[in-house]
């Protein structure tokens, strides 16, 4: 299967129509069956199209989005539902902030080729900034079926918490989609410490979308990538494809037979020693 990681770089975001046309053009060209948009995509498109007025800082804009403009989510999700259907692909639509019972979550919706949501994934670990503006942690990491694969999603800074990948890996995830956003000032190593490291210790594929561009004064810039276990990637680098922060998308073909053969020979997760791990969690009574 062909998979695609996007950055939103070089897309015309000035109107929904132009965005839709350029994104579908990009996806058509890539021939992908599964595409992933980065974190903060709803906010970026909202600000760029004028649906969310930009404030003096990213933080303030984010807060305004939460306080006054969450209705934009409906428009945003409907748009991506249509794109998934039109392109006949699975589409992880970046992130929105959603409110449920007075709690706010940073969430990815993934749509199937029928345009139906096949997974909703909330960010489970939050940064000090995200906590300060009142976001809550998700408490589930489910998978969805995309035969023959099982697919999970990792949201934003969850990539830097290895517990997330391990939970997905132990549930049998074959592919993990990552909607990420890293500040431009960080070098590539922060990103390597995230999804690349998660892939290597769980032996799944990862499709890593990263936000690129200016969002209300905050510059984001990390590279999109399709990642696999080192042994089955060119140069044993762990990268099937890796772009630059200004790259609009990267697409790669997954060789699932090779991955399964690797796991058969080198079953990393079978060599876990859970008897030694009781300190990592509290047993639910």
């Amino acid at each position: 299967m062909q998979v695609t990681a996007l950055t939103m770089a070089s897309l015309d975001l000035s109107s929904q129509e132009k965005y839709r046309a350029e994104l579908t053009g990009l996806l058509k060209k890539s021939g992908t069956g599964l595409a992933v948009l980065p974190a903060y995509s709803a906010l970026l498109l909202g600000v760029s199209t004028g649906a969310i007025p930009p404030a003096e800082s990213f933080q303030k804009t984010f807060k305004d989005y939460i306080d006054r403009h969450l209705t934009w989510n409906d428009t945003y999700l409907e748009l991506h539902e249509k794109i998934a259907r039109e392109m006949d692909i699975y589409l992880a639509a970046g992130t929105v902030i959603e409110r449920e019972k007075d709690l706010l979550y940073h969430t990815v919706y993934c749509f199937n080729p029928q345009g139906e949501p096949c997974l909703r994934q909330r960010q489970t670990h939050l940064t000090p900034f995200q906590l300060s503006i009142g976001l809550s942690r998700g408490e589930e990491l489910p998978l969805f079926d995309l035969p023959p694969y099982k697919v999970g999603i990792i949201v934003d800074s969850d990539a830097l918490h290895p517990e997330t990948g391990r939970i997905l890996g132990l549930q049998g995830a074959d592919i993990v989609l990552h909607c990420g956003a890293l500040s431009e000032g960080l070098n590539c190593w922060r990103q390597v410490a995230g999804m690349w490291s998660q892939v290597q210790q769980n032996q799944f594929w990862a499709v890593e979308a990263q936000l690129s561009g200016n969002l209300a004064g905050e510059r984001f810039g990390a590279a999109p990538a399709v990642i696999g276990p080192c042994e089955i990637t060119p140069g044993k680098s762990g990268y099937l494809q890796r772009g630059y922060p200004h790259t609009a998308e990267v697409t790669a073909e997954l060789d699932e037979a090779a991955r399964r053969e690797l796991i058969r020979k080198y079953p990393l997760l079978k060599l876990l020693n859970w008897q030694a791990y009781s300190e990592l969690y509290r047993e639910e009574s």
């Binding site: 670990h125 942690r137 408490e139 800074s157 918490h161 132990l170 549930q171 969690y281």
Partner: peptide, 21 residues
Amino acid sequence: HPWRDTNQALYSRYFPALYRQ
């Protein structure tokens, strides 16, 4: 630290059963 967090509810929900399978 700029991004570290923990989520015991998540870990307790999944890890005991997953590690033992």
